[in-house]
Design a protein around this nucleic acid. Structure first.
Length: 878
DNA sequence: TTACCCACGC
DNA sequence: GACGTACGTGGGTAAG
């Protein structure tokens, strides 16, 4: 049994907590926010890390030994706010109640205490985790020492291992010192070398290794200016290095073995919590704290490389990775397969597996359960090799996404790291990146892949437990997982494109663009790059003296809404607008689409990202088929090029009418809104009637337009500012509209108020199907952050529930098409719309079942309504 | 390569 | 009143 030592940088964490949380005080008027934040974090650390030994280190007093060498050290720092200072003694009391030792040392900082204690790593049996918000501590990272840094406030930490640092910052732990020496650090008043920032510093360190290395080879430094600066500020650089180096031999009077931790006494703690008014924490200490599993770093891993697949390696429950370099799995090739199960870890070279009947047989058996990362990708790559995988019942990607969609790194090593399993390498570490990317020798490749499958195998249970605790198991198993396979089939099938149609359009556009360019250059009096706002700006606003409406960070804004306001000022403007419009069509939609058509089949295979958006919507890329033009006729014609795959087939498009507003009516349970939908009224007209207090006949076009914008705002969670922009009115007026809207729909108003309260209370909001979005900023003292979080709280349940609904509809429709033995099939999803292709003979049936399935996939307080259309191309399905 | 501007969809 | 304002993907330019 090895020892697990947790070292907490007390000052750093309490500062973080203080600034991350609003200024709470208890009933006696004592400020407690920082202590509260610290305590919640502490509870989590105890759960997650299960330390056998623990210490919280604090800075002592104002001066340190560092001031002797540099008296300006930490100069210019703002004084600690008194609201925070008064919490230090409280925190120490809380630590005592936890029976957690804390320590400080005259003339030394918490860093040095931690640095010194972390050297126990050298005695083999210790594992150390350092917890801080200060990047300087990263220099302590090693094989035995993990440094967890707080991210965004204190609600999240990021665990740095040497490998993770390499991946994220591209430097080794001890180079942090050199990095800081070069960059300096404003907050500690460390000078560094002026003009050298992170980018330059990393570049130098990659070349020369250390600060000393740089100065030993100063002549080899590229760039005259840079060399000069380095030479001039050499002393400062070395002084800085000295200052940022954490002491590993401070004269501390504690020893690691004295820090043994046997847990806390809930009774003692609850007294303390009651006194402080930490109501919500009382529950947490009552229950058991041994729940979360942690895993020891696995140093070595056994891999069996198979030259032949025999069915005796399979057990019926294995983790599978079909490894592929690059993003696009429609065109990529498999490098090899990894399989982990109870018996061991196997690497199968791609050609061995793909020619093996035993492998195919195993893959296609539904009863053989597979744990994978990205079921959709796995399905598609295997389909491309003629294997139809079945029996996938764990998808780490989807599980991770559902647990926290705002986490933007969902690859196996990142997820594993977060769950305490730190022995999976990042792809970049193994393959390199960019032009230098390459496949390593087989043994290395095999081990890398096997570490992934081993992680899948090891973490399935833990992740599913978490989903279960969130009540998201159904969302995961019954919605996202089945959908992944359907999306995979849709992507794999692809959409047929009429290439010559696109090319003809392109040729026409090319001519028109050339003509326009010439005309615009003549009107401008000089040639310039029309696609460069930077060049266009001065022409419009200096040479032609047009009034400046808006500026951007780097110059004049030439965005469409600006140009539209100048439309009558100069004849160049309408031509520019047209040029922009056509240019977009040409570059993005004609050329862009032609670039991604499969030349053998003339089909386009998009990729839907099912684990990306914060709301639960899908996204689509390479190409994005969710933003094909429709608003303007000219652009809409692009859709003529999307045609059915077979002769005698048609395109069939069905879309939900006002799904978000209907969802809102349901969730808010607003009488008026519900009635409007039950009677199937034109919702924007109805809103106009309610907001402007007129009858139907009294609604003018302008009123309806404004009402529509307000509805739009409600659905997308825009601010009064956003609404003012879209309506071209002042913010005040926009706010008035929103207020009037809420007056008219009191149910909506109270729903919105409640949802914000709920978000504040539990830290997240949920959708109909229990999808979550965490909103840590909801309690921010920063008005903007908080406002944004509040709008998000209001908007996400609406948009996210709509996303849930159409996802479920896709699953239902897929099943129904199969049941009815139809050849019709889904091709695309565009948020509230499904596009299918089908034989003409099935048209009648589709007109019956598609709306039926979509409208009744869930039953709400209001009816869902689906419109549909069909034709010989996507364009004609309108 | 990266940052910025712009524009398309929902 | 602050401050920067729905979410995505992708094309282009310009600067490093």
């Amino acid at each position: 049994m090895s020892n697990k030592l947790v070292l907490i940088d007390g000052n750093s964490i309490i500062y973080r907590a203080f600034f991350a949380l609003p200024l709470l005080n208890n009933d006696k008027g004592v400020y407690t926010n920082a202590v509260y934040g610290f305590t919640t974090m502490l509870l989590r650390i105890l759960e997650e890390e299960q330390p056998t030994h623990i210490l919280v280190a604090f800075d002592a007093g104002k001066t340190t030994f560092r001031h002797e060498t540099y008296k300006e050290y930490k100069g210019g720092r703002q004084k600690t706010p008194p609201e925070l200072s008064e919490q230090f003694p409280l925190l120490k009391e809380v630590l005592d109640a936890f029976s957690i030792p804390h320590y400080q040392l005259e003339q030394y900082e918490a860093d040095d205490i931690i640095g010194t204690l972390s050297t126990v790593e050298k005695e083999d049996d210790w594992n150390v985790t350092v917890i801080s918000g200060d990047k300087d501590l990263l220099q302590l990272t090693s094989d035995q020492v993990t440094v967890s840094l707080t991210k965004k406030g204190i609600s999240e930490v990021e665990r740095y291992t040497p490998a993770f640092m390499k991946e994220k910052m591209d430097i080794a732990p001890d180079q942090i010192i050199d990095l800081k020496a070069l960059m300096g650090d404003k907050s500690d008043n460390i000078p560094g070398v002026p003009g050298v920032g992170e980018k330059t510093a990393v570049k130098l360190l990659k070349q020369f290794g250390t600060l000393e290395g740089i100065y030993d080879h100063i002549e080899e430094v590229s760039g005259k200016k840079l060399k000069e600066k380095l030479t001039t500020y050499k002393d400062e650089a070395f002084l800085s290095k000295d200052l940022v180096t954490i002491k590993r031999d401070s004269p501390i009077t504690v020893e690691p073995k004295e820090l043994a931790y046997g847990g806390y006494d809930p009774n003692q703690l609850s007294g303390m919590f009651k006194e402080l008014g930490f109501q919500s924490l009382l529950d947490r200490i009552g229950g058991d704290t041994t729940a979360e599993g942690t895993s020891e770093p696995m140093k070595e891993i056994d891999v069996t490389i198979l030259r032949e697949v025999t069915d005796d390696i399979f057990t019926g429950k294995e983790a599978l990775v079909a490894e592929m370099l690059g993003e696009n799995y429609h065109t990529g090739t498999i490098e090899g397969f990894g399989i982990s199960n109870e018996k061991g870890n196997y690497f199968i070279p791609a050609e061995v597996a793909l020619q093996s009947a035993a492998f195919q047989e195993w893959a296609e058996q539904y009863d053989n359960k597979k744990m994978v990362f990205d079921a959709k990708k796995t399905l598609v790559v295997l389909l491309n090799h003629g294997i139809h995988i079945k029996g996938i019942d764990f998808d780490m990607l989807l599980a991770s996404y559902l647990l926290n969609p705002s986490e933007n790194n969902h690859d196996i090593p990142a997820i594993s790291n977060r769950l305490g399993k730190t022995d999976v390498l990042y792809d970049e570490e193994v393959y390199g990146k960019g032009a230098k990317q390459k496949v390593p020798e087989e043994q290395v490749l095999a081990e890398h892949i096997i570490r992934k499958t081993a992680a899948l195998y090891a973490l399935e249970e833990q992740m599913e437990e978490k989903l279960k605790a969130n009540e998201q198991l159904e969302l995961y198993k019954e919605l996202e997982m089945p959908l992944a396979l359907i999306l995979g089939e849709m992507e794999h099938l692809g959409v047929l494109v009429d290439i010559s149609n696109l090319e003809e359009m392109g040729n026409g556009l090319k001519q028109r663009l050339q003509d326009l360019e010439k005309e615009i250059h003549e009107l401008a009096g000089e040639p310039f790059n029309l696609n460069s706002p930077k060049q266009l700006g001065p022409i419009l606003f200096e040479k032609l003296n047009l009034p400046v409406i808006k500026k951007t960070k780097t110059g004049y804004s030439t965005a469409a809404d600006v140009l539209e306001q100048l439309e009558n000022e100069h004849e160049i403007i309408p031509k520019l607008l047209l040029y922009r419009q056509l240019g977009k069509l040409q570059s993005t939609y004609i050329e862009g689409l032609l670039k991604v058509v499969d030349p053998h089949t003339n089909k386009i295979h998009t990729r839907f990202n099912q684990a990306l958006t914060q709301t639960g919507r899908l996204s689509s890329m390479e190409p994005n088929l969710q933003n094909i033009p429709i608003r303007l006729e000219e652009g809409r014609k692009i859709r003529q090029a999307f045609v059915p795959a077979k002769k005698g087939w048609i395109m069939f498009a069905a879309d939900y009418s006002q799904i978000e507003l209907r969802v809102l009516a349901h969730m808010a349970n607003d009488d008026k809104l519900i009635r409007a939908f039950q009677e199937d009224l034109d919702i924007h007209t109805q809103t106009a009637m309610d907001v402007f207090h007129v009858d139907k006949e009294g609604v003018t076009d302008s009123m309806r337009r404004q009402a529509k914008a307000v509805n739009f705002g409600i659905v997308y969670g825009i601010s009064d500012y956003g609404l003012s922009q879209s309506l071209g009115i002042t913010r005040k007026e926009a706010k008035k509209f929103i207020d009037r809207y809420f007056e008219s729909y009191p149910g909506v108003k109270s729903y919105m108020d409640e949802i914000i309260q709920e978000a504040k209370h539990q830290g997240y909001v949920t959708t109909l199907m229990k999808r979550r979005r965490y909103l840590p900023d909801i309690t921010s003292r920063n008005f903007n952050k908080r406002s944004f979080a509040e709008r998000t709280a209001m908007n996400t349940p609406i948009q996210g529930s709509a996303a849930d609904i159409i996802k479920k509809a896709m699953i239902d429709l897929y099943g129904r098409l199969e049941e009815e033995n139809l050849n019709a099939r889904m091709l695309l999803q565009v948020h509230d719309e499904l596009i299918l292709e089908a034989p003409k003979e099935e048209l009648e049936k589709l007109m019956e079942i598609v709306p039926e399935v979509m409208e009744h996939t869930v039953e709400l307080h209001i009816p869902l309504k689906v419109d549909y259309a069909y034709g010989d191309s996507w364009f004609d399905a309108k």
